[in-house]
Amino acid sequence: MTLADLPLGARAQVLALGGAGAERRRLLDLGILPGTVISVESRSPLGDPTAYRVRDTVIALRREQAARITVRSEI
């Protein structure tokens, strides 16, 4: 499953990062790496983007970016 599939409040561990080039680098630099634990904090009133907590910082990602991040759900 991907980060985009997670419900509000869920926690997951990153397995792999898709995408390429500058966009992928940006995600890496934000600290989204394989093994990183991410939780779903809040969703925009219009359903997209979604805010995730990554390494103690809340970062909003649009759905198509989140869909490139493969995760394993944790409880």
Binding site: R26, L27, E41, V58, A60, R62, Q65
Partner: peptide, 9 residues
């Protein structure tokens, strides 16, 4: 294009 936005504390 894609973007990421920090929601600061």
């Amino acid at each position: 294009s894609t973007f990421s936005l920090e929601l600061p504390p």
